[in-house]
Design a protein around this nucleic acid. Structure first.
Lengths: 155, 155
DNA sequence: AAGAAATACTTCAAGCTTAAAATTTCAAGC
DNA sequence: GCTTGAAATTTTAAGCTTGAAGTATTTCTT
């Protein structure tokens, strides 16, 4: 009961190393983006994520769909949408025939604000991933895509 | 003023796609690890990270060094260490000659608890990164290492 | 049509996170 | 010795996040 796995242990260690590096890089980039959003737009990453989802589905999403899209808890979205609504970037719209649900939609102010932020965001990511050429990007993407964690289920 | 970057725009988009995928994978793995830690050890990822840092420097770290090691704000570490100390997994030790600083160290209970969690953690990561062989792991690691965000400064 | 189960949300408690302000202590300069 | 500034931590306010509990409302069953 002391040498159960000989060969796979090295692989396991290698994977652990990879995971720690992925985590470090991701956190670093996330921190940089968060700071940028805060300083330049007085906003946050979660707000940006919600707005991005709503920008993609311009006609609006139910809270339900929104939290599924973002893979985040229901209660979480409630708070973020609350604050976005306070700022007039988003609006809640009653749904005909189902008084339980509400549709959330970008206001036109929210839409304008998002397009500006999105462009800046793309630029920041571009800078932060400097040194990764198209081929690398594609390659890493492919490798990541193989992970069980990347079930991109996007209904 | 409408076509400032022609070639680099495609690259920028490719990098954005890569970033979004990295983010998705990382969050997914993180969520899985968080849930495992909660269910099996009634603990959290931040607690695990702190304990891992303290396990590595068995003689202890100053709050200062701890937050630098984890790349996390000072105030943040305060709270996590508070809770770990309440549970007897960690202890604060006065430093001779500098009453401002305190050394934080794993208790022997904390050390024992960590070794158990760490082994489980490695196993979980191994499962979550299933499909990545040693070569892939090494390769992705290399590519990530090139990023500016991976300045692994580890003093 | 009444009751039960499923849906869509919100609220709540606890913990994580940051930036900024406040505390306490140490180190230098005068 | 005093003062000024730097250093180590903690506190605070605000927001993010989760899982679980609570509220309506709708839909299914019988």
């Amino acid at each position: 009961m002391s040498a159960p796995k000989a060969k796979s242990d090295a692989l396991s260690k290698e994977r652990l190393r990879l995971w720690l590096r992925m985590l470090r890089v991701t956190r670093q980039v996330e921190a940089a983006l968060r700071e940028k959003l805060r300083l330049e737009f007085d906003s946050t990453l979660p707000r940006f994520d919600v707005m991005a989802a709503l920008y993609r589905d311009r006609e609006g999403l139910k809270m339900n769909e929104l939290s599924k899209r973002l893979r985040v808890s229901n209660g979480n979205v409630t708070g973020i949408v609350d604050r976005l609504a306070e700022d007039g970037l988003v609006e809640r719209i009653a749904i005909e025939g189902d008084r339980r649900a509400t549709l959330v939609r970008l206001t036109s102010a929210g839409c304008d604000a998002f397009t500006v932020m999105a462009e800046a965001h793309e630029g920041w990511v571009d800078e932060l991933l400097d040194g990764v050429d198209a081929e690398d990007a594609h390659h890493i993407g492919e490798l990541l895509h193989r992970l069980p964690a990347d079930t991109g289920a996007r209904p």
